[in-house]
Design a protein around this nucleic acid. Sequence first.
DNA 1: AGTATCGTCGTTTTT
DNA 2: CGACGATACT
Length: 775
Amino acid sequence: MSYLDELNPEQRKAVEHIKGPVMVIAGAGSGKTRVLTYRIAHMIRSGVDSFSILSLTFTNKAAKEMKERISKIVGPSESRNIWMGTFHSVFARILRSEAQLLGYPSNFTIYDTDDSKSLIKRIIKEKNLDDKIYKPNIVLNRISSAKNNLISAANYKNNPTIHKEDVQSKKPELAYIYEQYEKRCFKAGAMDFDDLLFKTNVLFRDHPQALLNYQNKFKYILVDEYQDTNYSQYLILKKLAARFENICVVGDDAQSIYSFRGANIQNILNFKKEYPDVRTFKLEQNYRSTQNIVNAANSLIRKNQEQIKKNVWTSNDSGEKIRIIKTLSDNEEGYEVASDIIYRLNEEKRPNSDFAVLYRTNSQSRSIEEALRKRDIAYRIYGGLSFYQRKEIKDLLAYYRLAINPKDEEALKRVINYPKRGIGNTTLDKILLAAGQSDKSVWDVIGDLNGSGLKLSSAVQNKIFSFHDMISTYNQMVDSTNAYELASRIASSSGVLKELYADKTVEGVSRYENIQELLSAIKEFSENDVIEEGVDLPEGGEDRTLSNYMKDIALLTDADKDKKDTNVVSLMTIHASKGLEFPYVYVVGMEENLFPSQLSVNSRTELEEERRLFYVAITRAEIKATLSWANTRYRWGNLTYCEQSRFIEEIDAEFLEEPVSSKKESTASEGFSFSGGLSNPSSRFESSTPAKKPAARKINKPTFKPSKLVTDADFKPDDSNLIAAGQTVMHQRFGKGNVEELTGVGENKKALINFQNAGQKQLLLRFAKLQILEN
DNA sequence: AGTATCGTCGTTTTT
DNA sequence: CGACGATACT
């Protein structure tokens, strides 16, 4: 068993100890992922049924990668059976199949944060509450933390302690808002993010048989990043594992950085109490970073009180000390960071992808971005607005959501008058109010205007009627129509495509392209057996419905997209960098009130979380960590003066370079970047194309390549009946390829095609558009 | 009903 | 600064 030989003794013990509760405390860079993957592979090799393994990861991308690695050891036929994904996606899947037990439709909508906020605003408005006091953000946080602690709306209402708190904070109506919010989500057939965990708990609490089924199914449970689980997640695990207690949690208390979203570090600190016969393994050897980086990080984290004792060490070189850059302004900070990157690019022949710039808040990306752009350094921002959060995408997705679940109130609100069809705010208000004050959903109300007693002009009534009719038509097609067919039909017949096509401004064109991109993604989903986002589909085309495409969309984030496959400098928040590593890491904005955040400096626990966050930032670096801070910085339009972050002094001075002032530095770096014919250093690396224009394009694109499928005129697909083995064919996205063989009959006829550049693909001929080049 | 303009308010971090 | 909502006007 060669794979076991790749492990150090402690890693190997963690891999081989399969039965019973296990806790793996994995220091930064200690080969945690390797242990997890090998452990699962080892379990399967040792005879554990792959169907009985549940593995929870922090991102869907991590799950996908882990599955691929496991597949290399035990083969895809085994690895595909493992349930692997984030808490949210795994339990969303379970909730969909058990939905009727909870009175939900199985095609329930998942409300994202915007949807939740919008609904809360609505409730506040309808109740005539002061939105200066009841701020949607704060209200949502309160509801969210209630749910994460398994306090239902009814519990909330009846709890005297909570009521007292709300009265004290001058928000006595929070219980009412929570109750309404719950009600309206239910009526709309919608769950928010927290519901996916909350309702799973309800399911397991109220339906013992369902719990028993899943207990028996998931005999082996593994949890990554356990330090970032909340109470709701903890309880799900506790219940699921109660029968067999084969639960293995992996984490690092020093890297717990999500308490703002309810993560409870006590889960990992108390795991021993929960399972007294737990076996604990500590992975303390760091394989990632230099001694200087490891020791600097150790010296910092030592300042925290609460932690599991461990001694992270490395046998790597001592390496360079941590560099501190001090500048006069945030713009200059960007300049210095860019200069330093150029210096390393040139001197050490490093690709762009070896570099990452990390920051505390998303808004800091702007000055860095500008600086990199000026120097023609290709970069990419991760996080911020994701593809699926952009307005034009959300608009179209809202139509898809409605087609799948017409009761979806937030989706309906979004598109009932987009594009303009003469149903204005006054009308919408009336409709929403009528729905809000009855047991009817908004969809029911607009389907029966008379029965709802609404006073509307007949012209308006007709407009509403035809909207209702249009959505009904889509809805009837949902289960029987292929995703791409329906999606493109909706895009055009709803008028969305036309609306965007008419806009010839730069942003408008970009929005139109984004829509095309979404349609391409859906097309790809319709055509392929396996789609890129990591969701496996059953064989055949019958499940390629729009519902299936949409079911996880709300749960996809930027972190699920490939981060390092292109040669660009990565810009992201420290939170988003969790689990990643880069040879060169720049942590910018090392200033008091920014990092640590102003909101955290008054409480010990919050300050300790900031410190852990800094620990995470430093330990991303393999070769060199650089910290920077600026004397002045623009913050919401105003120039503010800044002091150096206390965290810099908390690192033992022996691991830091002597601080250098910006004046000296800028001359030096200018010397590097503009002398010796290297003024365009990025040209020395093939893929370092200049960064895209800032405006609408800068935000991430999905991993799939943009293609002009819908509008391209040159491409003339041949009748798919003419496709035969041995032919050379052209596919718009995959390019040239050879038809290896044909399988299946009728609707399920598939071609196995070996593409020159895209590898082997199985395409359903029913959907695949292929041009025959040679017979 | 739809559009233009002005005022407000806020920022951690994300599934 | 920039997003969003309220207000006023067409």
